[in-house]
């Protein structure tokens, strides 16, 4: 256990995966597919890259499982936060789209 941190994985392989995924991400933006599909793909690639960094560069893969739980707790909190605000935000968005373009210019008034 104590020597686990000394096992150095193949960092260059991780680097190439990250570089390739970044290029793929940028390519996905220009794909002639639906916006929602693009968003889902981008989120999936971002999570995959983050997981690679955490697992290999931050050695999370070689730590005890509890450390992984500590690391993913913020993700759970962020998702929870989005779910909590979502009903309110959609109520606001309904209101703003309901009152048409007047709402659209509202943020500009803050200038």
């Amino acid at each position: 256990m104590a020597t686990a941190a000394h096992k150095h994985p193949n960092y260059m392989a991780v680097f190439w995966w990250l570089a390739i995924l970044t290029v793929v991400e940028i390519g996905v933006v220009f794909l002639p597919i639906g916006k929602i599909l693009i968003a889902v793909l981008l989120c999936a690639f971002a999570v995959a890259k983050a997981a690679l960094v955490a697992a290999y560069f931050m050695h999370l893969k070689f730590e005890t499982r509890t450390m992984t739980w500590i690391a993913v707790t913020p993700v759970a909190i962020a998702i929870l936060l989005i779910l909590v605000i979502m009903p309110d935000s959609f109520a606001v968005s309904k209101k703003t789209t309901g009152s048409g373009k007047a709402a659209a210019t509202a943020p500009a008034e803050q200038k």
Partner: peptide, 9 residues
């Protein structure tokens, strides 16, 4: 994300 979702422009 929330600000973007609720913004019209």
């Amino acid at each position: 994300g929330i600000m973007r979702a609720t913004s019209a422009d």
